[in-house]
């Protein structure tokens, strides 16, 4: 019992918990990715442009925006800090930001559809660091919605 408390408990806290958290994180990530894929298939036919065409005729316009704050998770952050020592793509973080960006994009497109929009023009993405000590990023997506009259 004393040996367990002296060795087992610190070991459990320093190795076991981060592994448990990253397993939970992985489950959340997979569910989110499945949810994104499902929602994306519903909006594939919605026209979105990053340009701003002027020959749209008589239309109604409205600015839409949505932002998502996404946290990287403790273990991923740790791996990323190792990865920066050797260089190369940090795949786990690419995945996190990709999820956040797709989520922000989906929210804007879904919002546009709900408001009766017929398209989005001049769409822009912006990423900024907001977490302070907590490693997290804000992904902002905004666009001008057009509604044909």
């Amino acid at each position: 019992m004393e040996i367990f408390l002296a060795i087992g408990l610190p070991l459990l806290l320093t190795i076991g918990l981060p592994i448990l958290f990253s397993v939970i994180g992985e489950i959340i990530e997979r569910r989110h990715e499945a949810d994104l894929a499902r929602r994306e298939s519903a909006i594939v036919d919605f026209p979105v442009r990053s340009t701003s065409p002027t020959d749209l005729g008589r239309v109604d316009v409205e600015l839409l925006s949505s932002s998502v704050v996404i946290g990287t998770g403790y273990l991923k952050q740790l791996f990323a800090s190792f990865r920066t020592m050797v260089g190369g793509e940090i795949v786990s973080l690419t995945r996190v930001l990709d999820r956040g960006r797709r989520e922000a994009y989906l929210r804007v497109v879904e919002d546009a559809r709900q408001r009766g929009g017929t398209g989005l023009i001049n769409i822009r993405f912006e990423t900024s660091d907001v977490g302070g000590q907590k490693p997290s990023s804000e992904i902002l997506c905004y666009a001008t919605m057009i509604r044909e009259l």
Binding site: I24, G25, S67, V69, T72, G73, G131, K134, L140
Partner: peptide, 18 residues
């Protein structure tokens, strides 16, 4: 948000804030 960041994922409180 700190707790949520242990596993990673969207930090809903901060999304709302922004």
């Amino acid at each position: 948000a700190g707790l949520k960041n242990l596993v990673g994922g969207e930090l809903t409180g901060y999304t709302e804030l922004l």
